[in-house]
């Protein structure tokens, strides 16, 4: 009786609710990933004056499903000389890092899975878990290309976290909070009150508008690096490293990498939306504002930034490793420091 009680006590009261709250982001993520894959295929095709997939379903809209089915069917190869436990664990760790961020992402003022006070910090912390997965995958594959890719990736993600964090920190200064909900609420009341335009305040906030604009750009750039997207897709640059750290992966494990990449794209887009672009707030003040609209605005804005990432990818060539470091340390970092300094000063004076 004692033990049963013990087990029973372990199960929290709102067991069902917790399950639901855990699964809603997952379901959202799966649907979103399918849409994003389709978007990637179609946008890349249209940019290149192609039609893209046209055969699976009307206008090829079932193509992502077909791809997933294809990946599931594929043989799941593990190289003979690979370090098997690490090799098999890596994709899950990467995906975990991306998925854990969803715990704090506020889709609407009524749906915040975990309303913790250090939401921004949390996102940054769990975002770094992906690095471990990448190194594990790259090293355990026992492939020189994978190893090179993993090495590059670590250097890249660690260096770009700093300018990104500086940008986010400025928002934290402006909102005086790390809580994502509070940050959202601080941007209520139309497009002019978003942090990209300096947040709420009187006309003297014009002083910080240039800096916040630059910071939003810096965050966008460093988020591209963190998700390994072009022009920073050096860890997997196919012309040099074949496929980088996931060269040896196939089948479902490869799909996990793929999935994690898209999930990460959404996470960074969501963070950008929350911190600089008003989160769930409507750009028209009280017009089109409400619980339902919250989700619409939040998801819509995030999607827009996902599309921007796709658009950039199909426009730009990729940088070289040392240039990537140069951009990170010598361009983004000083700029973000200067902006951060000015914003903090402004905050102090006000």
């Amino acid at each position: 009786m004692e033990t049963i009680n013990f087990v029973y006590n372990l199960i929290p009261d709102q067991f069902i609710a917790i399950i639901v709250i855990c699964t809603i982001p997952l379901i959202f993520l799966i649907v979103y990933a399918l849409l994003a894959i389709l978007g990637e295929l179609k946008i890349s095709a249209w940019i290149q004056e192609r039609l893209g997939p046209m055969r699976t379903g009307p206008w090829g809209i079932l193509q992502p499903i077909a791809e997933v089915v294809k990946l599931i069917q594929k043989e799941d190869l593990t190289p003979d000389t690979a370090n098997k436990p690490l090799f098999n664990l890596a994709p899950f760790i990467i995906f975990m890092g991306a998925y854990a961020s969803f715990a704090v992402i506020p889709f609407s003022r009524y749906f915040i899975p975990s309303d913790i006070n250090i939401g921004l910090f949390y996102i940054f912390a769990v975002g770094s878990i992906a690095v471990i997965g990448i190194v594990m995958g790259g090293w355990a594959s026992n492939n020189k290309y994978s190893l090179l890719g993993a090495m590059r990736s670590v250097a890249q993600i660690i260096s770009y976290e700093i300018p990104g964090a500086m940008a986010i920190l400025s928002v934290a200064v402006l909102a005086s909070s790390l809580n994502l909900e509070k940050i959202n609420i601080a941007q209520e009341g139309g497009i002019w009150n978003w942090f990209v335009f300096g947040g709420q305040g009187s006309w003297d906030k014009l002083w910080v508008v240039p800096f916040t604009l630059i910071l939003s750009l810096i965050y966008l750039i460093s988020s591209l690096a963190e998700t390994n997207r072009t022009p920073f897709d050096i860890p997997e640059g196919e012309s040099e490293l074949v496929a980088g750290y996931h060269t040896e992966y196939s089948g479902m494990k490869f799909a996990m990498f793929f999935f994690a990449e898209y999930a990460n794209m959404f996470v960074v887009a969501a963070v950008l939306t929350i911190t600089f672009f008003g989160g769930w707030n409507s750009p028209f003040g009280n017009f089109m504002q409400g619980p339902g609209w919250d989700v619409f605005w939040f998801v819509g804005k995030s999607f827009f930034f996902v599309i921007v990432q796709i658009w950039l990818r199909w426009t730009l060539p990729r940088l070289r490793v040392d240039q990537l470091m140069y951009v990170g340390w010598k361009v983004l970092l000083p700029f973000s420091f200067i902006c951060f300094l000015f914003i903090s000063l402004f905050r102090m004076i006000n």
Partner: peptide, 9 residues
């Protein structure tokens, strides 16, 4: 601009 151009496929 190319996004909206006529496709050649």
């Amino acid at each position: 601009a190319h996004l909206f151009e006529k496709k050649v496929t």
